[in-house]
């Protein structure tokens, strides 16, 4: 293979990821046109999702799946953030090398388990527990949020641990020499030093939770209604797509594309903010 050919092929491969990203945006935008024209901005706040009898038209609004996505993500973030911070503190400041290593691997294996396994386990083992403690029928916002939290903890913990590890030893030692306790060193030296990485990891995990499909599909209940209580079943954008996208017709299909576009654009901005504003350059998750 000549050098020029090799170079051109590598250039084309590199531009491919650009075209895929632009392609996704363009395709979703094009197919969402019908729904955009029909419902406009109100799509975001309308809670009706009803097809006409002839399956050709209907009224479709994204409010319920949008709220379901936001609430399940919010629950997951509230649970996952303190736990992930605790784990990173344990790994970087408390555990000795011989303990930290296997714990690190265990946490990373938790991240490798496919999301469908979380869903299935959650449905048969975790939902009954939520049902016993909080009432409701087991599946719903709370169950989805908790299992979602377990899924994103490893990502958050891995990035936070890596950025906490970059704190110079000298800084910590000086604080200890002043008589600071471990917690004070973590709070006043490590946390401020690793702030960018920590916030970045939280936002990145947020982006992940918003787009998570399979685990939530098992657990959120997949019902098109607003949750009145935290244990009520509802639905989310990815779950609605997973269950109903392929069977939808015309305007309903277009509304699904609209929802996919909303999810894609929101994730795009969240990930961009996390990666380029807080994390600077991509932090490698594996060690």
């Amino acid at each position: 293979m000549s050098g020029k050919l090799f170079r051109n092929f590598s250039f084309l491969s590199a531009t491919l990821s650009f075209f895929i990203l632009v392609g996704i945006f363009a395709v979703l935008f094009t197919y969402a046109q019908d729904a955009m024209h029909e419902f406009g901005f109100d799509f975001l706040f309308n809670e009706t999702w009803e097809a006409d009898e002839d399956d050709e038209g209907g009224i479709f609004g994204g409010f319920i799946p949008i709220i379901g996505t936001l609430l399940s993500t919010l629950i997951a973030m509230l649970i996952a953030t303190p736990l992930a911070m605790g784990i990173s503190i344990f790994l970087t400041e408390i555990a000795s090398e011989t303990i930290a290593k296997p714990v690190s691997i265990a946490i990373e294996l938790l991240a490798a388990i496919p999301s469908i396994i979380y869903g299935m386990w959650g449905l048969f083992y975790f939902a009954p527990i939520v049902h016993d403690i909080f009432g409701g029928n087991g599946v719903g916002l709370l169950t989805a949020g908790i299992v979602l939290a377990i899924m994103i903890i490893p990502f958050m913990a891995a990035i936070t641990r890596d950025s906490m590890n970059t704190t110079p030893q000298v800084l910590k030692e000086s604080a200890y020499a002043m008589g600071a306790t471990k917690f004070e060193v973590i709070k006043d030296v490590v946390m401020p030093y690793a702030k960018g990485g920590i916030i970045g990891s939280i936002i990145l995990a947020l982006g992940r939770a918003l787009g998570e499909t399979m685990a939530v599909a098992f657990l959120i209940g997949s019902v098109m209604s607003l949750p009145g209580k935290i244990t009520d079943p509802t639905t989310s954008i990815p779950v609605l797509l997973a269950n109903n996208f392929a069977e939808a017709q015309d305007l309903e299909m277009s509304s699904m594309y609209f929802l996919a576009l909303i999810l894609f654009v929101v994730s795009f901005f969240i990930i961009s903010i996390a990666k380029f504003y807080f994390l600077g350059k991509p932090v490698k998750v594996k060690k």
């Binding site: 392609g23 979703l28 787009g211 999810l263 991509p282």
Partner: peptide
Amino acid sequence: IRNLSDIMMSAPSIVIGVFVFAL
């Protein structure tokens, strides 16, 4: 390209399914 590819790494997988379905 490096930045866009980084973003693609975290893009929701269901959206990729929708995209491939359309094409």
